[in-house]
Nucleic acid binder design. Sequence first.
DNA 1: CGGACGGTTGATTTGTTTCAACGTGGGTGG
DNA 2: CCACCCACGTTGAAACAAATCAACCGTCCG
Lengths: 242, 242
Amino acid sequence: MSRRRPLHDRTCALCQLRGLCLPDHLNQDVVRSVEQVIKPHQPVARGTYLFHQGDPMTAYYFLRSGSAKSIVDDGDGRETVIGFLYPTDLIGAGSMQQQSYSNSVVTLERSAVCAVTTAHLAELWGDNEAVRDNFLSKIANRIQTERHARVRLDHTSAEQRVADFLVELSRRMDGLGRDPDDLTLTMSRYDIGSYLGLAPETISRTLRRFADAGIVAVKGKSVQLIDSDKLSAIVHSESHAR
Amino acid sequence: MSRRRPLHDRTCALCQLRGLCLPDHLNQDVVRSVEQVIKPHQPVARGTYLFHQGDPMTAYYFLRSGSAKSIVDDGDGRETVIGFLYPTDLIGAGSMQQQSYSNSVVTLERSAVCAVTTAHLAELWGDNEAVRDNFLSKIANRIQTERHARVRLDHTSAEQRVADFLVELSRRMDGLGRDPDDLTLTMSRYDIGSYLGLAPETISRTLRRFADAGIVAVKGKSVQLIDSDKLSAIVHSESHAR
DNA sequence: CGGACGGTTGATTTGTTTCAACGTGGGTGG
DNA sequence: CCACCCACGTTGAAACAAATCAACCGTCCG
């Protein structure tokens, strides 16, 4: 397909996502200093582990393209998906201030990845307030996201959870400048089920019910949002508990 | 009952919990500078709101004694309990870097509270690395806690959730130097249910089943852990789903 | 080509909610 | 100081939503 761009092209200054990973108003000098500590990697294949739960924590990551899932091993072999990651998301924040990663991260498709070592981050941190605030914001955002995920799981029906999942994904795609009504579910139904606390069969059935109601159009991993207002309405419908 | 101690007695240097809120190795000078920005309050009655969701964010809090619950308004009037707070917990971290509090905090019993204004915290933050790291650790810990809560809600039965709740509470009491096998549930069954995503009736029934099995002894709000090993075993028992 | 995995659909089972009724204890006002 | 009251708690019976079990299909990859 598309030719791979030479390594030196993959700099922060040229990255289309600049201003998302880094604060907008950073001047050239700072951008250059950030670049020196960010290691751009070759795009990696689907199913690649960025790091495993328990590995010594050495770096934070960003996706430049693609998507990934964050999973934890709940002791007895079973894995739980705790989040899906897209470009601009700070990866590794959940292990902040710890010696080793508290979760694993696996790519869901071919993806391009940036890494910032913790040592280098500490330097930047001390040197530049804007960078520090940007990271703090992302971390704060992470707390909010985890909390939202938690509240979502309480007291909500399968329909509400799936609707919320779609709406949230749509919002994120919008934020990345993509069509918010044309979603590609890069993760499996099993992953979605694990994330939402539902069986994969329930994901299938619920999507089908939405499709029958004319709210979405589903064709495998491709989902079109036809009536996203109704979808939002389902999310906020009387928490008729469970 | 006990006479109220004069205000000037309630300083960090004299607080029994020193070394929990603040890093252990802080020298006298730093302790004094921290003290100047911490506002000790009179003990407050049960049901007192430390702040309401949506209030402009002005300060972080610590409990010196007592307990509290953190709740969010899920839009349509319904409230969800997202956590219980005890001495040494950083309160308000979920609203970090935001203009207003993203949740409310209410005391569950008569409690003593400390406050640190955000402005003063920023000063300390810049001045002293140890204080900054201590706060970062607490924030990181918070992310872990929210995540743990989230994973716990997925794929776990009511028995597992209640067992986990008791084990976790026991651990926290142990960390505060109290008897880990003699718990007092300062919150209502409704609060526990909301927190665990279960109906209050289910909390009652599950506790009763544990009591019948000789794992705990329940008398109202007082719970004795008789066989905490078995309790842990229930938590980690084959995630037989739901 | 074949096999395994992901996905869908159907039938059955089950844990938890809901509804309902009844206890109980602590706080408040008479 | 006692009695009332109300929120909290408990227990039982019934309804229900989602899990599980099972069978089948498509398809991607080796």
